Amino acid sequence: MSEITAARQSGGIFVPVAGLTAFAIASGYLMSLIPLTLGHYGLPASLASWLASTFYLGLLLGALIIENVVARHGHRLSFIGFQLLLALTIVIMPVMTEQWIWLLARFVAGVAVAGIFVVVESWLLIGDSKKERAKRLGFYMTALYGGGTLGQFGIGFIGVEGLFPFFSILALLLVAILPALVSKQSQPACEQHVSLTTKQIRALSKPAVLGCLVSGIVMSSIYGLLPFSLQLQGLNAEQISGLMASTVLGGMAIQPVVSALSCRMSKSLLMAAACLLGIFATGLMSLVEGYSIMVIGLALLGMSSFALYPIAISLACDELDSSQIVSATQIMLFSYSVGSVVGPLTAGRFLTQTHGLVNFFFIALASTAVYMLMVSLKQKPQVVAG
């Protein structure tokens, strides 16, 4: 067993949500900036998929070690520390442009982001009821995707060349630290938390684990390769910015729906429905040409892929005691990270094909939809009162 700090203060969600929003704006801009700025720094385009996978490899490793860090330093200081570690990588990249430096920086950034996710998720997911957890998770996902949407506009407004984009991201990360830095009393109340045993980990919902895995596969490919794929199609920076914003905005828009429905219907069936929406989106973009269709299709794809993680992590935590939430979120993030490492490397093989990345999304979502439908058919119909 390990003891770590956890949030249980009423109204104690401002600090993590405010910090997460500024972080999400910076992260959304950064994830789209990196593949588009490679040429400016004389780095090969083929490095894009490796940078994405290296980042998620760091995320995977971070998911294994974060619990001990939070146990020692608490949520508030851990949040500040991980933000500063991420900021350090932003300082290094534009001044040291060797490939191995960028790969190392993105690996370290992945560890830092894993810490940010686990700290904020565990801060918000502590609740006495499924409804309370779903409500807080809705705040979390809205802040994450809303900030990510705003970050996409940095491509068009700030650009992708020179030092200024990196300085802008650095400034946002420093802003993200401020709420936790000035609100010293925001440190969550102490409560005993325990690590899940191997038996308990194996007993976690299989659809939840798979949902996080597939979410990692699809979302890492969206953030890591979609801007580059759109660039290969001849779109300019402003068009790419608009399409990425549309994708993330779709993910944000679906969060209130997910929060409401996750308490009222089978979560495996809800994940199947999300996958079917993504299948429709990929079919639309494959069969009909045009920028407007891409805006609609990517918004629907964002709704589909960005819905999977909150549904899955909520499903994993449904039957757990509050004392096990941090350990569970760490395990779900690990599953997400495994998918995130595999996703860009696998999706990269599809980039040279017509509608290659769209076809990759179709395969991932269609296979998941079939599994989730099979699981939901085996379950007894159950409606949870709101």
Score class of each variant (00 low, 15 high):
36 L>P: 01
176 A>D: 09
194 V>N: 08
322 S>Y: 09
370 V>K: 03
27 S>P: 05
73 H>S: 09
3 E>M: 10
165 P>N: 10
114 A>M: 04
53 S>L: 02
95 V>M: 10
3 E>Q: 14
258 V>I: 15
11 G>Y: 07
299 A>W: 08
302 G>T: 03
347 A>V: 03
299 A>K: 12
256 P>K: 06
280 F>W: 15
190 C>T: 14
203 A>D: 06
6 A>F: 10
61 L>P: 07
338 V>E: 00
190 C>V: 15
108 V>Y: 04
262 S>W: 06
102 W>A: 04
289 E>K: 15
383 V>D: 14
27 S>A: 05
166 F>Y: 08
372 M>C: 15
330 Q>Y: 03
204 L>A: 03
46 S>L: 05
34 I>L: 06
101 I>K: 04
370 V>W: 00
126 I>Q: 15
289 E>H: 13
381 P>G: 11
111 V>F: 11
298 L>C: 13
273 A>E: 10
15 V>W: 11
38 L>P: 12
44 P>N: 04
118 V>F: 08
203 A>M: 11
235 L>M: 08
192 Q>S: 12
322 S>N: 14
74 G>H: 13
374 M>V: 15
268 S>T: 15
300 L>T: 13
336 Y>F: 14
134 A>Y: 09
25 I>Q: 14
299 A>Q: 10
131 K>Q: 11
22 A>E: 08
326 V>W: 02
240 I>Y: 01
252 M>Y: 05
119 V>S: 02
322 S>P: 00
246 S>N: 03
44 P>W: 01
79 F>N: 03
324 Q>G: 10
139 F>G: 05
152 Q>W: 05
294 M>A: 08
43 L>S: 06
260 A>S: 10
173 L>C: 09
346 T>C: 04
120 V>H: 10
47 L>C: 11
28 G>Q: 03
209 V>P: 00
132 E>C: 00
20 L>Y: 14
